[in-house]
Structure formats: C-alpha cells, structure tokens
Amino acid sequence: MVEWFFGYLAGAVILLSILVVLSRNPVHSVLWMLLMFLHVAGLYLLLNAEFLAATQVIVYAGAILVLFLFVVMLLNLKEELRIKRFTGGWPFRLLIAAGILIILKKVLDGFKVGFKGPWSIEAIEQATHTKALGKVLFTEYILPFEIASLILLVAIIGAVFLAKKRLRT
C-alpha cells in the first residue's frame, strides 16, 4: 500500500519537475512547481516528517512560490514567449545532466546505511515530532540557527536595497 503511494508521489514529482523545466510560459512553470512542492510534502509525510511537510507547504508553496508568481506577473512577458525555448547546445547539456545522473547512480549502488541514531520512530512518537526537532535544533544546532536568522536579515536588507528605485542625485 505504502509502495503504491510512493509510486504515485514519485511519478508525479518527476513528471511535474520535467514539466517545470519544459513549459514555455514562466507562469505555467511556477504553477507546476507549486503542484510539485505539494507532492514533495506528501513524500515527507510518508517519511514521518510531518512538521517538515507543513513547513514545505507553508514556506515553499505558500511564501516562496507566491513571491515568484508575484514577480512573474509584475513583469511584462509578452516578448519572452516568442523567443526560443532552449539554448542551441541543448543535446550536449542533456548529456551532461544524464552523466551526472549516472554518476549519482553509481555512487548510490555502493551506499550502505551506517549505524543508527537515537531517534527511532518510537522515540519520536513518545516525544512528539515537533518537540524532538526542537530539542535537537535548539541545543545542538543553536549557532547555525542564529546564523540562519542573520542570513534572512541580510536577504531582507539586500532585497529592499536592490529593488528600490534609484534616487537621482
């Protein structure tokens, strides 16, 4: 049963990501991406990562993609639809992507799971998932967490600075 769910979600994710790359209109691209993010959230649910699934839906699908859609609709895309979709050397670039895929497959074939950590499903179930995540995030990873907040602050300032109108001096 779980295998069928996984098959559906994986097939949808791959198909939708190909559609994102191939569609001519950026608006369609963003909408396919939205659907793909929802399917990825479904995959996270299958992997017992429900907090991450919620984060995926809220932050990725709800915030980042709406930002993308907003910008796409701000810009005038009439003449963009008429130019060629791909660069000239696309078969070569397809070859590069396929080569990377083959290398990844070779690496995956030799991969073995190492020794297991302390957070088995029962342990997470006992502590509840959000609490378990918070315990790890706010003790072991507190410094990276603060640095992430700094990155977001820099991004806010940079975005405001870049997108504002230049003042005539």
Partner: peptide
C-alpha cells in the same frame, strides 16, 4: 533514525527563501 537530516532541511529552506528574495530583487 537521526533527526539531523531534517534540521539540515530547515536550513536549506531558510537559505532558499533568502535566495529567492535576493534573486527576485
């Protein structure tokens, strides 16, 4: 059975949000 992978995903999402804001600007 280790939660560190999910913590890393959080940081990836945070960086992706920052990157989207800067890139779109």
């Amino acid at each position: 059975q280790d939660l560190r992978g999910q913590i890393l995903v959080f940081f990836v999402i945070a960086v992706a949000a920052a990157e989207a804001a800067i890139g779109l600007a």
